[in-house]
Design a protein around this nucleic acid. Structure first.
Lengths: 159, 159
DNA sequence: GTGATTTATATTGCACACAATATAATTGCT
DNA sequence: AGCAATTATATTGTGTGCAATATAAATCAC
């Protein structure tokens, strides 16, 4: 094993990329009964959380910002979810540019079944809660650092 | 902020998923001059490494195993790369099932330019080499744990 | 040695992911 | 008020990812 920086096993990004995909694959059997893919499940998490906080409507923009996805991904995703009947999409009357999302009764009721997923997955992965939380902190810290590094870059390129 | 396990920010998998995508996005401007996407770059890493080790030919199966991707992803990827002229695909004569990959002169020469990428990315990310290596260890450890947990599951379901 | 099984790759179909572009509504400037 | 810039979403096009299925070659069992 050389120490070349081009060695696959030395690249952190490949570690992130492959682990991310493997973990998401472990979600599939648990999400299938709900009829959701992993990105759709993430949208539902945002919707359920908004519902908990008394926000009946969520703008598409909010989904994009929360999940760090752009409209090219999110718009068709939401259309499929509307087709499945878990949420509704309609233009805001206050601002006609905005499309507001609202959970249907079906979408809201999925929360019950979904609530068991995190614990099942953790168990399946062989990690302790503490390990998972520590990893989460590290990942989010790095993400913040990446995003703020971009800000700095943007600032240093005025005009 | 509640402690609900369904809260988006509590899910390690979302941290992995979003960080992975963000880091890969940072690769794009560096890979564009080479005419490679990120998964194509990963294939090249495997090919360059095999070349270093004196292996002129690499089976498609080896790429799949190394990158944890299946043939549904890899076959069209390799066809595009062949079309771009960075590698060749041809059936093995010893075993007609196997397709062997070989770098072209162009493909080999890209290694020079690619060798600068890891350092540039690390610099851009604001992480130290030590942090990156530590993260890499953690990610790979978790990946190993996931994979071996699967093995155990498979074993416990005989027939 | 021949049929059953396994192995290596390919194909199909669907769902992301994202860059680039388009469009319509709103805001801001003067 | 009127026009430029901004904002929110949609569309287009290309490239993954992956489950499911197909196919052909090699191996195994007997």
């Amino acid at each position: 094993m050389t120490h070349s920086p081009l060695h696959l096993d030395h690249q952190v990004c490949f570690g992130l990329y492959s682990l991310s995909r493997q973990v998401i694959q472990r979600y599939q059997p648990l999400l299938k009964p709900l009829g959701l893919t992993y990105p759709q499940y993430l949208v539902m998490l945002v919707m359920w959380q908004a519902h908990e906080e008394g926000e009946a409507n969520v703008a598409v923009k909010h989904i994009c910002e929360r999940l760090l996805l752009d409209t090219g991904t999110v718009t068709p995703l939401l259309k499929r979810m509307e087709g499945q009947g878990v949420l509704l999409r309609q233009r805001s009357r206050q601002d006609e540019r905005v499309v507001e999302l609202a959970l249907t009764a079906d979408g809201l009721s999925l929360r019950e079944q979904a609530s068991k997923i995190p614990a099942q997955l953790l168990c399946h992965s062989g990690l302790t809660i503490e390990q998972a939380q520590a990893m989460n902190q590290t990942l989010r810290g790095w993400l913040t650092q990446l995003m703020s590094a971009d800000m700095a870059d943007a600032d240093s390129t005025p005009l």
